[in-house]
Simulated assay, not measured.
Amino acid sequence: VDKLRYNIIDKKLKIIITPKEGKLDPSQLTFDEGKPPFDLILMLDAANIEQLGEMYDQNTELFFNLPTINIDHHASNEYFGKINLVDLTATSTCEILVALFESFGEKTIDETIATCLLTGIITDTGSFQNSNTTPKSLSIAAQLIGLGAHQQEIIQHVFKTKPLSMLKLWGKALTDIQRDAKHSLVWTTLNHKDFEEANATKEDTTGLINDLLSSAPDTNIVLLLSEKEPRMIHGSIRTREGIDAAKIAGLFGGGGHTGAAGFVLQDKDIKEAEKFVLKQIRTYQEREIKGGKVE
């Protein structure tokens, strides 16, 4: 080889080799992937590896070749890491991280980190309104505020600041809300067109089921079905005490907590998903009532 140079065009690497004499035959060239510039994969708040979505799908080999640490608090966790730190008594993964960071040393948690950790605890407990709130979560929250966490800033950004696109989307969801008194069920749906018309993002459903739908009286199960991508349905479930939301989500391959859970359905439009999910939930309710497990 006389010269070797490269350039990048349209995000593609072009390698130019000039031989000292003659020409190179393609059979003389081989390509090997270099060592990935990572030492470890850390996975937080995921019950199974499929929840990592495209990050896993596009880097499957990386997940097999590198050490993986799975930190989570969901009862449905599949312990898919090479190292698994799963605490089912924790109200959030951030609660687990507080203890982990403390083990690193006294000055690990500064104001910024404390604010981030408190945000996770507040959002997972619904600002300490959900039934999963424990004395430990309240104690850790107080500890984080003592370390400088900006609690009022979190409340302002998470609960009191909503873009117009989100409000439009929520309005559509509330307009279409339905109730099945026999099965103590309230639900609503959002199709992909609703997101486009409201100019809303996938994240704009955040808080809808907790802040509004769960306020419905005389209701044991609240369901939100959202077609965030064409023929990709995201389901969110909230339940009253005595009904396991994670078990219901498990009917559709999902999981979560006793009072809050979720799932994803692929290759179904919103109407197909609505019919399918409602049938399964009603059957579940009737079976539980017959067994004397639901009052």
Score class of each variant (00 low, 15 high):
Leu29Trp: 04
Ala245Leu: 06
Leu88Ala: 11
Glu286Leu: 11
Pro37His: 07
Tyr79Arg: 09
Leu13Cys: 11
Thr133Lys: 10
Ala173Ile: 05
Glu197Tyr: 11
Phe31Pro: 13
Phe159Gln: 03
Leu66Gln: 05
Phe159Ala: 00
Ala114Gly: 05
Phe31Trp: 12
Thr188Met: 07
Val98Ile: 09
Cys116Leu: 12
Thr283Ser: 13
Phe159Asn: 01
Leu97Trp: 02
Gly253Ala: 08
Gln280Ile: 03
Asp194Gln: 10
Phe63Ser: 03
Asp180Val: 03
Thr123Phe: 07
Leu169Ile: 01
Met232Cys: 14
Met232Trp: 13
Ile145Met: 13
Arg5Lys: 08
Lys279Asp: 15
Lys82Tyr: 03
Gln143Ile: 00
Thr283Asn: 15
Phe38Arg: 00
Asp2Met: 13
Met232Phe: 14
Ala141Asp: 03
Ala200Thr: 04
Gly126Arg: 01
Phe63Arg: 04
Phe159Met: 05
Leu224Lys: 06
Ile237Glu: 08
Leu251His: 03
Glu106Ala: 12
Ser215Glu: 14
Ile69Cys: 03
Thr206Arg: 08
Val277Cys: 04
Ile71Val: 13
Leu144Pro: 00
Ile140Ser: 06
Met43Val: 14
Gly242Val: 09
Asn84Leu: 02
Asp194Ser: 08
Ile237Gln: 05
Glu54Asp: 14
His234Gly: 07
Ile49His: 04
Asp180Met: 06
Gln151His: 14
Ser214Phe: 01
His183Arg: 12
Asn7Val: 09
Thr119His: 05
Gly146Lys: 01
His74Gly: 07
Ile113Asn: 01
Gly171Pro: 05
Thr188Gly: 07
Leu29Asn: 06
Thr219Ala: 06
Leu185Lys: 06
Leu4Gln: 12
Leu117Gly: 03
Lys202Ile: 11
Ser236Gln: 02
Ala142Tyr: 06
Ala99Asp: 13
Leu13Ser: 08
Leu223Met: 05
Leu190Asp: 01
Gln178Phe: 11
Val277Ala: 04
Ser76Asn: 10
Glu203Thr: 12
Lys168Phe: 11
Ile140Tyr: 08
Glu197Ile: 10
Asp39Gly: 04
Val264Thr: 15
Lys193Tyr: 11
Thr123Gly: 00
Gly292Lys: 05
Leu29His: 05
Lys35Trp: 10
Thr175Ile: 13
Leu4Gly: 12
Leu4Phe: 10
Ile154Phe: 00
Asp124Val: 09
Leu100Asn: 02
Val158Ile: 15
Phe104His: 08
Lys3Asp: 12
Phe263Glu: 02
Ala142Arg: 08
Leu4Ala: 12
Val294Phe: 15
Gly253Val: 04
Ile96Gly: 01
Ala216Tyr: 13
Gly53Lys: 14
Glu78Phe: 00
Ser76Leu: 08
Glu21His: 11
Trp170Glu: 11
Gly146Leu: 02
His157Gln: 14
Gly126His: 00
Ser214Asp: 06
Arg287Asn: 15
Glu286Asp: 15
Leu24Glu: 10
Leu224Gly: 06
Leu62Gly: 00
Thr201Cys: 09
Pro37Asn: 09
Leu213Asn: 03
Ile140His: 08
His257Ser: 04
Ser184Phe: 13
Glu153Tyr: 11
Arg287Thr: 15
Val222Lys: 14
Met232Lys: 12
Val186His: 08
Asp211Gln: 11
Ala273Val: 02
Asn210Ile: 14
